[in-house]
Write a protein that binds this DNA or RNA. Structure first.
Lengths: 328, 328
DNA sequence: CCATTTTTTGAATACGTATGCAAAACACGT
DNA sequence: ACGTGTTTTGCATACGTATTCAAAAAATGG
C-alpha cells in the first residue's frame, strides 16, 4: 500500500511540532522564517503535500467549484468552461465538472455537489427546480445561473443583455431594408431564447414589419431542418434571426442548399459569436456575447459570497456587441 | 453559520449508534433491516448526507477522477469530456476538470490532483514530463493517456490505431487516382500527428507517389493558412490529408477561396469525424475515431486499477473507420 | 428450554489537519 | 540584567466518518 506523508512525518524530521507544519501551509498563519525554512526543507525531502480532505473536514470549506453544464456540443460552452477553469485555477480553486443529460439538473447531481461541499456552484445552460436551488441556499452555497435566468428573481444570474441585444439586431436588420423576418427559437422555454424573441419581436411590432416564429432546439440540425421547412413552404423571408450561432450555421447551409443567396435573398443573423462564425465558409453576422466579462462578474460574485455569504439575488446583464460580417 | 447534519445526529434520533448509521451508508456492510429502516427515516427527516471528506480521509480513497484537457476548442474534446463525465457518473465517480494552458501539464495541476488524492487520472491532448508521470505511479494512481502516447511504453495509453488508419487513408486516396499528395501535420511532436504522418507516408513511399509535408497546429486557422500558402506557391496537390478535422475544414475554406474545386481539383481528408464534418457546408471525408470504444477501454482500465493496482503499461489501439463523404 | 453458533450492535479509536490556549522564546527599553 | 510586551511554539482537541473488537442479540439445533 502506498504510504502517505503526513504533517507529523515532516514535523519529526524538521524537529518541530505538527502545528508548526500546519501553520506553514496555512495562508495567514504566523511562523518564524527559521521554522518555515526547516519545515519546507523537510517537506521537500519527504515529498509532503497537505491532504485537502483533512483540511476541508476541519475548516468545513473546500476549494472546489461545481460547474454544471449541458450543451457541450455548442462550441460556446467549451469556451466558457475553459475560461472558468483557468480563472478559478488562479484563485486556487478547482472545478468539479458535472454534465447533465436532461434539460433540468438531476437530484443526484445536486447530491454530488452537496456531498463534496463545494464552495460555489455555476449552472450553465441548464434549468433547475426551485426546490433544488433552495437546497444550495439553505447550505449557504453561492449559486450563479450563467447564461440562464430563472423566472423568479430570487437567484443570482449572469447573462448577456439579451433583450437589448435582440432589439439592436432587429434595428440593424430593419436598417438593411428587409421586408419580412423570421425568428428561430432555441430550446423550449430557456430564458435566453425567450428574451431574444421578446426583444426582436418588440421592435418588429413597433415598426410594423411582418414576422413569424419557428421553434427549434439550439442545434445545427435543428436550424438546418427548420430553414429547410421554411423554404419548402415557399415563404422564405428576407431575414432570419436564429437564437444562437450554431443554428444560424445550419440555416445558412440549408439556404445554400436551396440555392438562395445570402445576404441578397435572405439575410441571416446569429447569436454568441462562436469561433466558427468567423470562418470563411460562413462569415456570420452575429451578436457577440461578452464571455470574459460575464465570467469575471460570475467569479467576483462567487468569491465575495464565499468570503461573506449574503445570498444576494440579482440578474446581472452585460452588453455585447454586433459583429457585422457577410450574412447581413 | 450553517449547521451540518452528522451521522451522530441521525444516530441519536434513530436511537442507534453512529456506527450503525455509518454501516447503512457503507456499501457492503451488515445491518439488519430494522435498523436500516430506522436510520433512513431519521436521515430523511434531518436531511443527512455523508460527508465525502471525512469518508475519504479514513478510507484514503476518493471518488474523483482527474481529467486533464488542453484543446477544448477542438470539438472532438468536448465530446470526449461529455462521455467520460456521464460514464463515470454511472459508476459513482465525479470528474475534476483541469485545463492546461501549455502543451505540457503544469506541476501545479499535478499538485492539485495529488492533493485531492484522485482515484485516477486521464490526460487528454496534453503531454507530461516523465518525472511528473512518475509522481502518479509512486502514489499508485492509475493514469491513462487518452489520444496521446508517450515515446516510452511505460504508461497506459488509449488511442485510435493512427498508424493503420492513416495507411488506409493513403490507400483510399491512391485508389481515387491522385497524382501527388500533401500531409498537414498537427502540433509539434504529438504522437497522434507523428503516427498519422508515418502511416500515410509509408504507403506513399511504397507506391512511389510524390508527397510532401507542411507543419501546422491542429487549428482551423492553421489549416486555413497552410492551405493558402500551398496554393500561393502554385503547387496545389491533388489530395491533402490533414491531421485532424478542424484543420481540414480550414483547408477546405482556403481551397474554396482560391476557387479550387473539391474533390475535382483537390481532395481533402480529415481525421476525427467531429460533428461539423457532416455539415452540408463541408461534407468532409474523414477517419472516424471510435470515441465510445476508447472511453470504454479507458474506464475499464482505470476501474480495474482502482480495485487492484498493478501499474500495467500498455498502448491500446482501437480501429476506427473511414467515413466517405464528398471531399474525397 | 438450554447450549452453541451466527449475526448485529455499540464503544472506542484512527484518519490528517487546523486552532484555542498556555507556555516558551524572543525583542526591547531602561 | 531585568521586567514587560510581543511573537512563536507545542499540546491537546475537534472535525465526521470507517472499522476493530468485544458484548449483546438473534438464530439454530438438539
Amino acid at each position: 500500500m502506498k504510504h502517505m506523508v503526513t504533517a507529523n512525518d515532516v514535523a519529526k524530521l524538521a524537529g518541530v511540532s505538527q502545528s508548526s507544519v500546519s501553520r506553514v501551509y496555512f495562508e495567514g498563519a504566523k511562523v518564524s522564517e527559521k521554522t518555515r525554512a526547516k519545515v519546507l526543507a523537510a517537506a521537500e525531502q519527504l515529498g509532503y503535500r497537505p491532504n485537502e480532505f483533512a483540511r476541508s473536514l476541519i475548516t468545513n470549506k473546500t476549494k472546489i467549484i461545481g460547474l454544471v453544464m449541458k450543451g457541450v456540443e455548442n462550441p460556446f460552452y467549451p469556451q466558457v468552461l475553459k475560461q472558468f477553469t483557468t480563472a478559478f485555477k488562479k484563485l486556487g480553486y478547482s472545478v468539479l465538472f458535472v454534465h447533465t443529460q436532461n434539460e433540468e439538473i438531476q437530484p443526484e447531481d445536486v447530491e454530488t455537489l452537496l456531498n463534496y461541499n463545494v464552495a460555489g456552484v455555476i449552472i450553465t445552460d441548464a434549468a433547475m427546480s426551485l426546490k433544488v436551488a433552495e437546497d444550495f441556499r439553505s447550505n449557504r452555497i453561492p449559486l450563479v445561473f450563467f447564461n440562464r435566468k430563472l423566472n423568479t428573481d430570487e437567484f443570482y444570474s449572469v447573462c448577456c443583455n439579451n433583450l437589448d441585444a435582440s432589439r439592436k439586431v432587429a434595428e440593424y436588420l430593419i436598417s438593411q431594408d428587409v421586408k419580412d423576418m423570421v425568428y428561430i427559437s432555441g430550446n423550449g422555454n430557456t430564458s435566453t431564447s425567450l428574451e431574444r424573441e421578446a426583444g426582436f419581436m418588440e421592435i418588429l411590432q413597433k415598426t410594423g414589419i411582418p414576422h413569424r416564429k419557428y421553434a427549434s432546439d439550439y442545434t445545427y440540425t435543428g436550424g438546418f431542418q427548420t430553414a429547410l421547412g421554411i423554404v419548402d413552404e415557399g415563404r422564405a423571408p428576407s431575414a432570419i434571426f436564429a437564437a444562437n450561432d450554431i443554428m444560424a450555421l445550419g440555416v445558412i447551409d440549408a439556404l445554400k442548399k436551396k440555392s438562395l443567396r445570402i445576404p441578397e435573398d435572405v439575410k441571416v443573423v446569429g447569436f454568441d459569436n462562436i469561433d466558427m462564425a468567423a470562418w470563411l465558409g460562413y462569415q456570420l453576422t452575429t451578436w457577440e456575447q461578452p464571455i470574459e466579462e460575464m465570467v469575471k462578474k460570475t467569479i467576483e460574485y462567487i468569491m465575495a459570497e464565499i468570503a461573506d455569504y449574503t445570498g444576494l439575488a440579482k440578474a446581472v446583464e452585460i452588453d455585447g456587441k454586433l459583429i457585422k460580417r457577410k450574412t447581413a
